[in-house]
């Protein structure tokens, strides 16, 4: 690898620009294929361009052309948007960071969304629907609502359901889930659309403490991420 290629790769990562590193394993030459179709380094054939697109979309490393071409996708980091700066969120934010997610905690209640409670986590004190709209959740984003307050959770879920987020979870008992289902139905969200919401949130581990519930949620997010791409 040339140092200039390494620089371009790191710069693209910092700009959150999706890029694929394509290596010819026979002669060591390399190219970078950017999401917008731009190419740096050795020119690519049409077939190689479509392989690069495939690598980005699947987020999988590919070995192609009789094992002479290796494609390494570098997608922007996975994101987790947590609605509610509550006790569970403090633990969940830390766990998700360890799992390489870029975490944003949204809560307009400033006493909750205090930097002292969430060191090193991006905090957003806008209303959840405005915050989520601005954050542009995509297919590499997970969204979890944890406030327990329909005033805050519902607007977030309405935006989440319009996005491509790979995971949507909502805290609340089965009874709470039913009540929320009815409220979202009034807003025109069908049963099929609402089926995307995982609630009660998290894998059924019998979790009790905030940390245990965070484990259950992080485990379910991980499951959805890999079942989807497997």
């Amino acid at each position: 690898m040339r140092l200039t290629t390494l620089d371009q790769l790191i710069d693209a990562r910092q700009q959150k620009r999706a890029v694929v590193l394509i290596t010819n394993l026979q002669d060591g030459t390399q190219s970078l294929y950017f999401q917008d179709g731009a190419v740096a380094g050795t020119a690519l054939t049409e077939v190689q361009r479509s392989l690069a697109q495939q690598a980005l979309q699947s987020n999988q490393y590919l070995l192609a052309e009789n094992a002479t071409l290796f494609l390494q996708p570098y997608n922007p980091p996975l994101r987790l948007i947590i609605i509610g700066a509550v006790h569970i969120s403090q633990v969940l934010a830390a766990m998700a960071t360890l799992c390489d997610y870029q975490v944003t905690v949204v809560d307009p209640r400033q006493a909750f969304a205090a930097a002292a409670r969430f060191p090193d986590v991006e905090l957003n004190t806008d209303w959840p629907d405005a915050a989520l709209t601005a954050l542009l959740p995509d297919a590499r984003t997970a969204i979890v609502t944890l406030t327990h307050d329909p005033k805050l959770d519902d607007p977030a879920l309405r935006i989440a359901l319009q996005s491509d987020a790979f995971y949507i979870g909502a805290l609340g008992s089965r009874k709470t889930q039913q009540a929320r289902f009815n409220r979202l139905a009034e807003h025109g969200y069908t049963e099929a659309q609402q089926a995307r919401i995982h609630g009660p949130v998290g894998l059924d581990l019998g979790a009790v403490s905030p940390a245990e519930i965070a484990i259950a949620i992080m485990a379910q997010i991980t499951q959805c991420l890999h079942r989807r791409t497997a």
Binding site: L3, L6, D7, L25
Partner: peptide, 20 residues
């Protein structure tokens, strides 16, 4: 990759190994 760049900037000669 960051570490590789930092080491390279320190004038070190490097190799990168990747599981293919």
């Amino acid at each position: 990759l960051q570490t590789a760049r930092t080491w390279a900037q320190q004038g070190k000669q490097l190799a990168i190994a990747t599981v293919i």
